[in-house]
Design a protein around this nucleic acid. Structure first.
Lengths: 325, 325
DNA sequence: TTGTATGCGTTATCAG
DNA sequence: CTGATAACGCATACAA
């Protein structure tokens, strides 16, 4: 039989009755504000009663009263991408330690949903927002941190050092002797990708041959096929998934990696290691990114001003997908 | 300057004042219970005022008053695994349509955290639980659905047809002429993995050579190395990640796939396609699993009894990692 | 058809 | 040191 009746919630009044004190005393004790106001004896009695009854404060009531939900939202473009899973885990760990809960909003790579989702959130239980490659809807004033965005729109930013990342990558390729280097870039419109393109152009003395691809192996493969026609000897990919697409295209065309084509990815997703040959890629601390972002938001929520911009180091992980041309 | 002051929240009282009606009228209109009770004119006025003011009901207040939060929690073993990302997305999509929000709890493959996390949830804003390969802490009576568990402990279950999955896999291997088939199994303790082992033993007329591995490429590789020593000509893996470990081990030992060793995975994660050779695997509708599970929970929450067990079909996706011995 | 009054469980401000 | 008491914003029974 379906259990319609709600589980019998035990409230602070129940605890008070059990301990033989008033409800406000219970609240005082349990919220840790009893320092020198409540006798050790009563405090003990209250705690015992609460434990016996299995009392858990009602978060809705607390949120209503205090105006804070101790919860933040993380908005990501695509939770299906393991990278964001790692970011979420990092944020969640940091949040848990601070007594916060994080609710995940997955945009599903669909910018159209974005506004609606974020709107829903603002009405919702979120004290603040962690926005990954995403903007605050205009007109909304909220506590928010932007991840992987550039500073300048008033919100604190936490981002990867992508400039260093592309520098590592192209320097590595240049050192190997490559001169015709292509760029397999993301067709998802975000500042971090613009930045990569700009940086490559800068280091290479002009814009490289470029194709734009979606974050799917199949889509990236199609784009990479075009890139192969350009006659490049090496490609830098905005993401490991894109690099996977390049592997697929190369396999189709019979071009060997790294003998005929060097490829470098970005993110160091787990599967980069299991590709054949193992992918050289820019390794990134995704969990750290999430954790740092949460911490910045926590400071903001606490009324403390977080840094305007925090950039996290990256490192080139040289495996076997790169070689001299 | 950090904005300490909370954004000025607009309440139903503000809307009422603006529309020149009482607060209860606003509530009636906005909760859709105005059918034939409120004149079209006032209703219009209320809606206009709400829109102008940008009114969003306070969820904490509503939750306190009604006793429901319109939010469910999804507990997964490891959000870093893309499979669970897909499940989450499916659940989230279904939830969004029903006006629910889903909060994700990542156990991080750490059973020790599990109880604590779930406990926190029960106190929290979750009306119900979606438990992936996880049990309800004893003594807690809550609305919950189990995913990828076996029926029998009182909770409705939504699961994959893993029996069919292993049948497809071993039939395929048998048809190819394999007789020495190994099992690379998960060391994460869950019924779905026990079921696979049992089914294989059943189909094979006895327990196959087996190794247990964690869900990491490196760990799976180590385990697979042992398996290679057993002299099997084919392996069935509980998961594509495990299969990836087998690829790594095979590469190390110089055994060729599929000429020397056939391998079959489970889940059809995206990267299965980009492996060399592309992995033959049991494809599974992870998003559907999440969606169906949410729907079952929604029915439960509505006081309607969900099916005791729902099993979702799977299909063998034959690619190039299997061949005759 | 609409308004008044009440309470959900908490925290916080006061008196005592 | 402790206990009444007043909100927080909303939904709803009941009165008008």
């Amino acid at each position: 039989m379906a259990d319609i009746s709600a589980p019998p919630r035990v409230t602070s009044v129940d605890v008070a009755r059990r301990a033989g004190v008033s409800q406000s005393t219970v609240s005082l004790v349990l919220s840790g504000k009893a320092r020198g106001r409540i006798s050790a004896r009563t405090e003990e009695a209250v705690r015992a009663a609460a434990a016996e009854l299995g009392y858990r404060p009602n978060v809705a009531a607390r949120a209503l009263r205090t105006g804070v939900a101790r919860s933040v939202a993380l908005v990501v473009p695509d939770i299906t991408n393991p990278f964001f899973g790692r970011v979420l885990r990092g944020a969640q760990r940091a949040a848990q330690e601070a007594g916060y809960t994080v609710v995940l909003v997955d945009i599903g790579n669909n910018r159209a949903w974005e506004a609606a989702s974020v709107q829903a959130l603002l009405a919702g239980p979120a004290d603040g927002l962690l926005l990954f490659e995403s903007d605050l809807p205009p007109g909304t004033s909220e506590h928010a941190i932007q991840i992987e965005m550039m500073p300048g729109r008033g919100l604190p930013v936490v981002r990867l050092d992508v400039e260093a990342g592309v520098d590592f990558a192209v320097d590595h390729l240049l050192a190997l002797g490559h001169t015709r280097i292509g760029h397999v870039s993301s067709n998802f419109d975000a500042p971090t990708f613009d930045l990569r393109a700009a940086r490559m152009a800068e280091r290479l003395g002009g814009p490289p041959p470029t194709v734009k691809a979606p974050f799917t192996f199949e889509g990236a493969k199609q784009a990479a096929l075009d890139m192969l026609d350009e006659g490049v000897t090496a490609v830098f990919c905005d993401d490991d998934i894109l690099a996977g697409g390049v592997y697929l295209a190369a396999r189709d065309r019979g071009v060997r990696i790294p003998e005929d084509l060097s490829v470098i990815g970005f993110d160091d997703l787990d599967f980069a290691r299991v590709l054949a040959p193992p992918l050289t890629t820019v390794a990134v601390d995704a969990e750290g990114l999430g954790a740092i972002a949460f911490e910045a938001l926590a400071r903001d929520l606490a009324g403390d001003r977080p840094p305007d911009e925090q950039v996290m180091p990256v490192a080139l992980k040289v495996r076997e997908s790169t070689a001299p041309p």
